[in-house]
Write a protein that binds this DNA or RNA. Structure first.
Lengths: 220, 220
DNA sequence: GGGTCCATGCGATCTTGTTCGCGTTCACTT
DNA sequence: AAGTGAACGCGAACAAGATCGCATGGACCC
């Protein structure tokens, strides 16, 4: 496992780094070819030129192989977002772009959604905390965007920004689950996300309202 | 596996039903004592008075044991809700009560949240579809409540009720995950749910608005 | 009463993620 | 040059969920 090195990084660690790279390459290619669940550690080990058990010198579990990759791709996606982000645009637009980037990333492979979800299902494993931290990070970025909007008065002063960010996150990832299970098309998934965000923003952006003036509550 | 019986239910099936009951009892007690992941099928089999492999005559996977239980308890919870439900009350109140019942059910055991989540992580297994169907059912009930409110004008005519129901569902279950992982207290979880619903309703109920009049967008 | 069918149960076995103990390598120390 | 110790790799072994082929028994049919 990649624990903090006990000694400074002298030349002895380069071998390990190369192995890690090979393992990762092997794992990702096999995941792509067979899917996460059908790729076995013995196959990965073989392709990486080592035994299956040796993989555990570098990784704590099979799931971590994919979660590590996800974390990296998240980072890339975020810098991609930041590069094209214009902080002077309205919140709604910025959030939409953020979620777009996020969705492109996750839509590239159902296994990413599946395994990220499954990882949060192992309370005793490190990978669960890692994955939840990753989610928190995403939520944090969303909250940042919302805070900027609130500062400019696009959102009410008393808005619970964290709750809103969490809602955006959970609603969008929730919509991806049926897709990852092959129950709805990629397009259906996209639409579900869009209408969910639209709905959330009706609450988040007060201006967009068309209040019907609350007619009398006549039952039936 | 409990597939549709090929022949009418004559006396030959009684034995099987009793076994199923014993298995279930054994499984649930062991889950409670050791937690889902630490209870082994061999233990369950032993307590139910049979070998581990025989369990598979009645159930398709270990996870299904708990998901079956969850489905049943859902049913109970819903009838409990309906009993005390007053359809003339405002949407918000009804939804709050529904979610309260739902939360009481799931808060009784972290494993319910954990396994329900994990089950949606096996696209090829029946248990995934079962669990997603269960979620859809929950969402459907929420939508029903919202539709009633919309009919009375509490919600805008053009509201996407399904999106709102989905949002409520995902936001509340999403909030339970960190709790099930032991990262936040039961109270923290409850609060997160409360503020998420509050936030959603700010969008769902137009009346509750306090529009700040959109000041000019001055950057920085 | 013999024959048939099928749900049930069993034990062996498989699969696969993971653990364990041992041996090797190699930069560093003295 | 000898010694040290952490990182690395290996093959055997383990754990536990799941599969398989075979046996049984009892309800039904003739």
């Amino acid at each position: 496992m990649p624990r903090r090195p006990l000694r400074p990084d002298d030349g002895r660690l380069v071998r390990g780094r190369k192995s890690r790279a090979r393992i990762r390459e092997a794992a990702l290619s096999l995941f792509r070819e067979l899917g996460f669940d059908h790729a076995t550690l013995r196959q990965i080990g073989a392709r990486a030129g080592m035994g299956a058990s040796s993989i555990y010198r570098h990784v704590q579990s099979k799931e971590e192989l994919l979660v590590d990759e996800l974390a990296d791709r998240q980072e890339e996606a975020w810098t991609e977002f930041r590069k094209a982000d214009d902080r002077s645009r309205p919140v709604r637009e910025r959030v939409a772009r953020f979620l777009e980037v996020q969705h492109r990333l996750l839509a590239s492979d159902p296994d990413l959604t599946i395994i990220a979800l499954r990882a949060t299902t192992r309370p005793e494993a490190r990978v669960a905390r890692r994955t939840l931290a990753l989610q928190d990070r995403t939520i944090g970025l969303l909250a940042e965007i919302l805070v900027a909007g609130r500062a400019r008065g696009e959102l009410p002063r008393d808005y619970d920004v964290m709750a809103a960010a969490r809602a955006l996150f959970h609603v969008t990832s929730g919509a991806r689950v049926p897709w990852a299970n092959g129950l709805v098309s990629a397009d259906g998934c996209r639409q579900a996300i869009a209408s969910a965000v639209e709905l959330l923003f009706r609450g988040i952006t007060p201006a967009a309202r068309t209040a019907p003036g609350a007619p009398p509550p006549t039952e039936r």
